[in-house]
């Protein structure tokens, strides 16, 4: 199906939301933030003690009803219902001790992170979350990556789309410590800390 004249498919999840949404308080508001992207990551064996410093996951199932997606009732494709304000509040509240645990496992402080790359939902939510982590942990990551302006929320590719862009632009350099922060319906929370190694050598030559 095509949207009148403009060539866009009306089955797009955002279009389904656009047809139904009435106000700022709509539970489909988050559907309007989604963008499309593909990402891939290759991992390989490295000497013990090198490579990914820490990687971890947890599930906060008591909040599982805050973000639901299923086939649309108004057309082809899907629709997604998110209680965005509650989701952000509980995510920030519950993530702070998890961030503390992860950086402690890595034997560092939050201030030792050169680039914090969080899941991209809204710039305001990322700022609020970062402020809360800083308030609780006492130090601040040197950079917090926000790439929403040109990509929107590209689901779980966001972390790697951001990493790829910063590598290509040679903003992330060898020796920089990066922390990835995944947040998903469930609520699923994932974290990874690693130090940039010769990975950077393959990027930035096209600029």
């Amino acid at each position: 199906m095509r949207h009148g004249g403009s060539g866009e498919y009306i089955s797009h999840l955002s279009w389904n939301a656009a047809r139904q949404i009435r106000s700022l308080f709509s539970k489909q508001l988050a559907s309007l933030t989604l963008g499309d992207a593909g990402a891939a990551v290759m991992v390989e064996r490295a000497p013990r003690g090198s490579g990914i410093d820490v990687i971890g996951f947890t599930t906060l199932a008591e909040h599982s009803r805050l973000c639901l997606a299923f086939p649309s009732s108004v057309g082809p494709g899907a629709q997604m219902y998110t209680k965005s304000r509650t989701l952000h509040r509980v995510a920030i509240e519950d993530m702070a001790p998890l961030v503390a645990e992860t950086i402690a496992e890595a034997g560092i402080e939050l201030g030792d992170i050169d680039y914090l790359i969080p899941h991209q939902t809204s710039a305001r939510a990322i700022r609020a979350g970062t402020q809360e982590f800083v308030r609780r942990l006492g130090t601040s990551p040197k950079h917090v990556v926000v790439n929403l302006e040109e990509y929107g929320n590209t689901s779980s590719t966001t972390l790697f789309v951001a990493l790829h862009k910063y590598l290509e632009e040679q903003r992330i350099r060898k020796g920089d410590r990066v922390m990835l922060l995944a947040l998903a319906s469930g609520i699923e929370i994932g974290m990874a800390i690693f130090t940039i190694d010769s990975l950077v050598d393959s990027y930035g030559h096209t600029h």
Partner: peptide, 8 residues
């Protein structure tokens, strides 16, 4: 072993 991110 360790595990490194090789490319993106």
């Amino acid at each position: 072993w360790g595990c490194r991110i090789e490319s993106v």
